[in-house]
């Protein structure tokens, strides 16, 4: 039973984290190759504050606010650079985060932070909390997608210049996407830190950023259900892959490549085209 609880908790954190990136990259079209930095900021902020004696729930709020503020600062950069330039800039932010944490003894340096205090929740209760937060993030995503804000996001993702011509304040909306997305990543980071009780700079590097981006892309960019399913699958994949052990990353990298090569729309795209062809076959007999 303990194993399943750990697995479900990891799944919940991954879904929350992937949905947070989906808000920025999926809805608003701002690609980020350094999103793990915000997971890290949330994790470090909450770990340090609970170690300083703050209660867990306060630490989560602090992690959310702190990651969101840094997210807005990085979002400011996205107002200057676009598309491929933004991809590389956010990748740089990821490396900068790891580079800074690694050299600061106050942040644990290479060794990271261990002995993160208990949350006061039992392990099943923590799992339930994680899953509830993931569900809230999914509900929030769907709400935003249907609201005015989501339509503007979609417009910016499609064609930012046209949105500006229409008189829409695109920069503010982009900043909002970064603020919400990174704040959610901060929450995911806080859960991550208190789930594992240990964090180090290596846990928030480039590979993590790519992993979460691949969850979004494999799920189908912008699709809430697709991304949640992909995050759930990809987060437990390494555990299932224990059987193939040595070839784990090979399969992972290969899957990523094949998915993009043959089904760039992701799971959502596969599902949509399956529905379409089924409709076509059912409609064929009708006059």
């Amino acid at each position: 039973m303990g194993y399943e609880i750990t697995l479900l908790t990891t799944m919940g954190i991954s879904i929350l984290f992937a949905l947070s990136l989906n808000l920025i990259t999926g809805f608003c079209g701002q690609i980020s190759l350094g999103h793990a930095a915000f997971l890290g900021i949330g994790a470090y902020a909450s770990a340090l504050s609970t170690k300083a004696g703050a209660p867990f729930f306060l630490a989560v709020l602090f992690a959310m606010a702190f990651a969101g503020i840094i997210g807005v600062v990085v979002g400011l950069a996205s107002l200057r650079v676009r598309a491929d330039f933004l991809a590389i800039t956010t990748m740089g932010v990821g490396f900068l985060f790891v580079g800074i944490v690694r050299q600061q003894d106050a942040l644990g340096g290479e060794l990271g932070i261990s002995g993160i205090p208990d949350t006061g929740l039992s392990r099943p209760a923590f799992m339930v909390l994680t899953l509830i937060l993931a569900a809230i993030a999914a509900a929030l995503s769907i709400y935003i997608k249907r609201a005015w804000m989501g339509r503007v996001f979609a417009g910016i993702a499609e064609d930012e210049d046209t949105m500006r011509v229409l008189g829409i304040d695109a920069p503010s909306y982009k900043l909002a996407a970064f603020a919400i997305g990174t704040a959610l990543a901060g929450v995911a980071g806080a859960l991550y830190a208190h789930h594992l009780k240990f964090i180090g700079p290596e846990s928030f590097g480039f590979v993590e950023s790519i992993t979460v981006l691949s969850m979004v892309v494999v799920g189908g960019i912008g699709s809430v259900a697709g991304v949640a399913i992909a995050a759930a699958l990809l987060s437990v994949l390494p555990a299932w892959f224990q059987i193939i052990g040595d070839y784990k990353l090979l399969v992972y990298g290969g899957l990523l490549f094949l998915m993009m090569r043959f089904a760039p729309g992701g799971l959502a795209g596969i599902f949509a085209s399956a529905m379409q062809s089924r409709n076509r076959t059912t409609n064929r007999g009708k006059p």
Binding site: A87, I210, Y247, L249, Y252, L256, F257
Partner: peptide, 21 residues
């Protein structure tokens, strides 16, 4: 463009593993 980017990253991860194996 991100489709080719992710495909490329996947290819790189897989290649690194092939070299190791």
């Amino acid at each position: 463009p991100f489709v080719a980017l992710i495909a490329s990253i996947g290819l790189y991860i897989a290649a690194e593993e092939i070299f190791r194996i």
